[in-house]
Design a protein around this nucleic acid. Structure first.
Length: 617
RNA sequence: GCCACCUUAGCUCAGUUGGCUAGAGCACCGCUUUCGUAAAGCGGGGGUCUGGGGUUCGAAUCCCCAAGGUGGCUCCA
């Protein structure tokens, strides 16, 4: 996005945060301030106003006060204080949150280990050396603990707007008090700010939740429950077509489809390590005989048991299983969001059981599928190397040395594919192993995590997975987990927004709509014959013989974003030719000039066979 | 789960400070019309105002609880 290309915006946005805090301090002198960093689109500030809850009505008043400070053009002056004086300052000012930060800063400065808290707060600049002095910035009557940099004076900030307020835990810890965070957007010019708001509007228009309803793809029901999507016939076609695409490619690479039940004994998750870590997020089932089961939250344990059902020779490795199947996780209600985060979601999951020597080739094969899949949709992919955090080994299973070696192996694959063009994701690993995560950048510049390739040396231990090697000994194997879409549901949410609901012909739930000009017998007969012919050719066709005006029927077809709409009347019957109406975003090929019914349908049927995205995004 | 806000017909929304049988457009159904590329005309059905409890002479409107949603926080195998 444009705003990321302008590092000069960061000091400006950070200055806006100070101006915001100064304004709030004028209006509520008792406010206790937290931190106020620049963000990708502006800034936010965390603050504690006791029982008073800010609302959107307060924003106008705060913005007015901010504008006064801007008009006063107060210079931003930096100065330093010895750490103990700074602590005294925070104490005197009753700024308890700042005080906490300063104490941590002092403490972190005296310890050799990086203190996680200060890392989070971005105060680690001189992490190793003892902190003796801290930096402050002052504008007008307002002083804030701050590393800077800032613009010269309050008059030098661009356009800003307060957007929303939300409750947060101080420093993101649930054990900490809950305070308020005000989000603002900020840009160099008013035009940039307006452009950003336009972008936000565009994103709203593309919102998959809105389009899902308008295009009749999926629904939710209060009766069924939150986070449990119900896919309509149209939505189900989309899911089927996307999944077929992935699975056909997998078959090319030697994957075999398997099928497993959706509930499982608790024991499987104890062996996998999931029970210890995710017991609260499982849907638990107790049988009438008192046995504990859970809805499956993932598929690895099941697939391991298919592998482990017999002894395996090294010669049959790699064994590759694939399965598109629904998983169930008891997500917190506040985390649910459209198809992006669900309690029941379908993974296009796969597991490769292999020896270490196979890993590279297997990972590269998966990477090929990912490239082909995302390439077909015009997504730009970014790669993230998701590794363990050595400072937080409690979150992971297995020995640190094993982590190091598997990560090196993954890194080699990444380097081979993209060189240094990847993002470091320290702490982003799964608890059982490191991952290569793929982020897709959509048509309006947003990034979404989608595909994943994961190395797992822990579950083979937990499930005692082996093969018989050349020496006739049982040898521990390794697992590779891979999902191309990640979850079909989440991919759909990303994809719907990517194309704004304008699906290419091969994916469109309805490919051709045939409408009649009137209900005369000859017209209806001609149109019905065309519908039959279209179905013979495997096209998804809808016949609109409603007693409505042509204009209205065209409109209805356009609103449903149907790629081809044809109107049948006396003209078509007499000439035997038709002029299809082609959805505006699609590339108009000369093949769709006026032609016979059969030629038209064959052209579309042919087009529907190729998995290319011919729409202009 | 936590904080803030929201929930009126299938959809999108009106509904003044609590006060007559709760409205509109679209959609749906019926009739008329038989129509040429983004909305033909007329008529009709449809809502215990998300659910439950309370305050009040009186509640869509105020209070409490629950469910669902939106934006954040936290979490994400």
């Amino acid at each position: 996005m444009a705003e990321n290309q302008q590092p000069a915006l960061q000091p400006m946005r950070h200055s806006m945060a100070h101006i915001f805090a100064a304004a709030v301090t004028r209006m509520w002198p008792e406010v206790k301030l937290g931190v106020g960093p620049a963000t990708d689109t502006g800034f936010h500030y965390d603050l504690d106003l006791g029982d008073y809850k800010l609302s959107n009505d307060d924003f106008k008043k705060i913005e007015a006060e901010m504008r006064k400070i801007v008009a006063q053009d107060q210079p931003f002056e930096q100065f330093t204080k010895p750490i103990d004086e700074a602590i005294q300052w925070a104490n005197d000012a009753k700024q308890t949150y700042k005080l906490e930060l300063l104490n941590d800063l002092k403490r972190a400065g005296t310890t050799v280990l990086k203190d996680l808290d200060t890392v989070e707060l971005g105060l680690e600049a001189n992490g190793e050396s003892k902190v003796e002095e801290v930096s402050f910035y002052k504008n007008g009557e307002f002083t804030d603990l701050c590393r800077g940099p800032h613009v010269e004076s309050t008059g030098k900030v661009g356009a800003f707007k307060l957007m929303s307020v939300s409750g947060i835990y101080w420093r993101g810890k649930e054990s900490n008090p809950q305070i308020q965070r005000v989000h603002g957007i900020g840009f160099a010019t008013l035009e940039d700010l307006k452009q950003h708001l336009t972008m936000v509007e565009e994103a709203k228009k593309r919102d998959h939740r809105k389009l899902g309803q308008e295009l009749d793809l999926f629904v939710f029901s209060d009766l069924i429950g939150a986070g449990l999507p119900l896919f309509t016939p149209r939505g189900t076609i989309l899911r089927r077509k996307l999944d077929d695409f992935v699975q056909e490619m997998r078959d090319e690479y030697g994957y075999q489809e398997v099928t497993v039940p959706h509930i499982t004994k608790k024991d499987a998750y104890i062996a996998s390590g999931h029970w210890q870590k995710f017991a609260d997020e499982l849907f638990h089932i107790t049988t009438r005989e008192g046995h504990e089961f859970a809805m499956k939250p993932m598929n690895c344990p099941h697939h391991t048991q298919i592998y482990a059902a017999k002894s395996r020779s090294y010669k049959e490795l790699p064994v590759r299983y694939r399965e598109t199947t629904t998983c169930y996780r008891d997500e917190q209600s506040g985390e649910l969001s459209g198809l992006s985060r669900l309690r029941a979601f379908s993974q296009d999951d796969a597991h490769v059981f292999c020896r270490t020597e196979h890993i590279e080739e297997e990972a590269l094969k998966i990477w090929d599928i990912i490239d082909r899949f995302y390439g077909a949709f015009g997504f730009e992919l970014k790669v993230r190397f998701s590794t363990h955090d050595p400072a937080n080994m409690d979150s992971y299973s297995g020995a640190p040395e094993k982590w190091e070696s598997t990560e090196q192996q993954l890194l080699g694959i990444i380097k081979q594919k993209v060189g240094d063009n990847y993002i470091d994701g320290v702490g982003e690993a799964a608890f059982y192993g490191p991952k290569i995560d793929f982020m897709a950048k959509d048509a309006i510049g947003r990034e979404h995590q989608v595909a994943t390739i994961q190395l797992d040396f822990n579950q083979p231990e937990g499930f005692d997975l082996t093969c018989v090697n050349e020496a006739g000994e049982r040898e521990r194997i390794i697992m590779v987990h891979a999902a191309i879409m990640g979850s079909i549901d989440r991919f759909l949410s990303v994809y719907i927004e990517h194309v704004a609901g304008k699906f290419p012909v091969w994916l469109s739930p309805e490919q051709v709509r045939i409408t009649t000009v009137n209900q005369e017998e000859s017209v209806v007969k001609f149109a019905e014959d065309m519908v039959i012919r279209a179905k013979e050719l495997g096209l998804r066709v809808y016949f609109d013989n409603d007693n409505e005006s042509v204009g209205k029927k065209i409109r209805s077809s356009e609103l449903m974003k149907v790629p081809y709409t044809v109107v049948i009347g006396q003209n078509e019957i007499e000439s035997g030719e038709l002029t299809p109406r082609i959805r505006k975003d699609m590339e108009v090929s000369e093949q769709h000039e006026a032609r016979t019914v059969d030629e038209f349908l064959k052209t579309v049927a042919n087009e529907a066979k190729s998995r290319v995205n011919k729409t202009s995004l």
